[in-house]
């Protein structure tokens, strides 16, 4: 028996149908969907230190040095989480392999660390032209493209800790990384907050 044969259950699996309903009823203003099971690794290293190049080689990705910025390459993304901390996002199938490669690359670096945190957070896509206003109902951060230049930030949304990641200039919207235990709350909050765009309250489960 292998790990892959066991059914998985994402924190917002039960909200998928409601997210689709909001997307449909909003007439294009909003798109809500969970993006579950992403590989997520916390990488810790001294900025500018010897561990960073090794980690970057293993990831095939530069680790952003500026606060609240991100780098992308292919299907991988690195988010700045602190001056010596990054969160690397990769597709689900990279779980294990990527962590092993990183750990190997950093084996001799005493100040570096890697931790698998894939189960720590799930990801919610909040897309569409109304996405910025939707989040502004529960997030005090200035999400205007002029202010949210770096593209990512750790903050609170609906009183829950989140990481916000802008989708990029072409696609209005955000990925919201939320801790698994808060995901149900955030899902309920999103459905409630979407009421003015759907004209009906899409019921919480």
């Amino acid at each position: 028996m292998t790990a892959e044969s066991v059914p998985r259950h994402s924190p917002l699996a039960h909200a998928a149908e409601h997210f689709r309903t909001v997307t449909r009823l909003s007439g294009g203003a909003l798109r809500l969907a969970e993006v579950p099971y992403l590989t997520q690794l916390t990488v810790r290293a001294e900025p500018g230190g010897p561990a960073v190049p090794g980690a970057e080689r293993a990831l095939g990705l530069r680790l952003p040095a500026e606060p609240n910025t991100l780098t992308r390459h292919g299907s991988r993304t690195a988010l700045w989480m602190g001056p010596d901390e990054w969160l690397v996002l990769a597709p689900p199938e990279e779980a294990g392999g990527l962590e092993d490669r990183l750990r190997e690359a950093l084996a001799d670096e005493e100040s570096a660390a890697v931790a698998d945190v894939s189960g720590q957070r799930t990801t919610v896509l909040v897309g569409g032209p109304a996405s910025q206003e939707l989040l502004a109902r529960g997030c005090a951060l200035d999400l205007h493209p002029r202010a949210f230049r770096g593209g990512c930030a750790q903050t609170t949304l609906a009183h829950a800790p989140v990481v916000l990641v802008a989708r990029g200039a072409q696609k209005p919207g955000f990925w919201v990384l939320v801790r698994s235990s808060y995901a149900g709350h955030l899902g309920a909050w999103l459905l409630d907050a979407a009421t003015e765009y759907t004209s009906v309250l899409v019921r919480e489960w």
Partner: peptide, 17 residues
């Protein structure tokens, strides 16, 4: 909207259901 169920975040475990 900080009222009723949304008043304060409710945290649940993966086994809550």
């Amino acid at each position: 909207r900080d009222r009723g169920r949304l008043f304060d975040p409710v945290r649940v475990t993966p086994l809550h259901a």
